[in-house]
Design a binder for these strands. Structure first.
Lengths: 170, 170
DNA sequence: GTATTTTTGTTCGCATAGAAACCAATAACC
DNA sequence: GGTTATTGGTTTCTATGCGAACAAAAATAC
């Protein structure tokens, strides 16, 4: 497996995750980013948070977060409330409908996948973890540069690119 | 790092790839899926292929492929031609504009990423490959089920799920 | 030859994702 | 207090991605 195949494999992993998200959405009516958002609210103080906090938690762009919140609001899972003291900020509150939905979904999801991952030898699992972190570093060039104190890394050039060539259908 | 963190890491990898795609699009006017499509045409006989072949190569849904081809057609990078003998099939032909664009983009991209991957110890690279393949198997549950002759795999239940919980902003 | 099934690719609808533009509110500066 | 800079979130636009529906064409069955 060379560079190209690694990239192709990543694309396939991404696709699987997206397909899974679609299945969950069909079955439960919420997507994974939506679920992540609801989970965050559930774990927040007073089951509330701000759009900015959710955005940072999800590590997404502001407009994307706004869209996710819109759709959850339309579903009745959360509500937008004004925040005392700062009129720019919108408080996002989990509704009981959202809370109920959370009770149905996460345990099923988490258990199944954990099951599979934990059936692996722990050495294997460790490998996966390290490999993913390595990939993050390779791809997250900006992050590495932003923290020169992290570790000894080889000098990495500014602009990183990604390539593609053939991929084979399975 | 447990299951949740693996999932979170995957999400971060996905994000990096998407951000990279955005940069490339801004700089060269084409996205990575579009580049993949053009590359495939370039390597095809007579610089032509069918929508179905491109779809299988990209491993994408038909409507997605149609959209990608639409946008490349609008850019003048490819053309839709009828196929002799089967009126359902559309031949997709790379234009010289598309060919020229390919000359500018891919070498830069591929080289940079290869460079970084190949600067890793070969053991590390091997780990990454194996880990990705393992993840593919875990996520590609349907593939494994569809091919019971592949290898000895533990019995895997039908519906797999994915979970999420906290992720931290870096 | 006719009826049915399968194939091919397009359209539509929905969601995610980012960039850019925007505006109101707040903070910082003088 | 007035001016400038920053912040927070929304809107608009573009692209990717999937599923469902669809129509035409081809393949298959009788």
């Amino acid at each position: 497996m060379d560079t190209t195949e690694i990239l192709i494999t990543i694309r396939r992993i991404v696709r699987s995750i997206n397909l899974e998200s679609k299945k969950i959405q069909k079955e439960y009516g919420v997507s994974i980013p939506q679920l992540l958002c609801l989970s965050y609210l559930h774990a927040s103080r007073n089951f509330q948070s701000t759009q900015g906090e959710i955005r940072r938690f999800l590590n997404l762009n502001s407009s994307t977060t706004s869209g996710i919140i819109d759709r959850l609001e339309n579903k009745g899972c959360l509500a937008r409330l004004p925040k005392q003291g700062d009129k720019r900020v919108v408080n996002i509150a989990l509704t009981s409908k959202g809370s109920e939905l959370l009770k149905q979904v996460p345990p099923l999801l988490h258990d199944r996948l954990s099951e599979r991952l934990q059936s692996l030898p722990s050495i294997k699992l460790q490998q996966i973890q390290e490999s993913l972190v390595t990939l993050v570093h390779i791809l997250d060039i900006e992050q590495v540069e932003a923290s020169p104190m992290l570790t000894i890394e080889e000098p990495i050039e500014e602009t990183k690119k990604e390539i593609s060539s053939k991929s084979q259908e399975i």
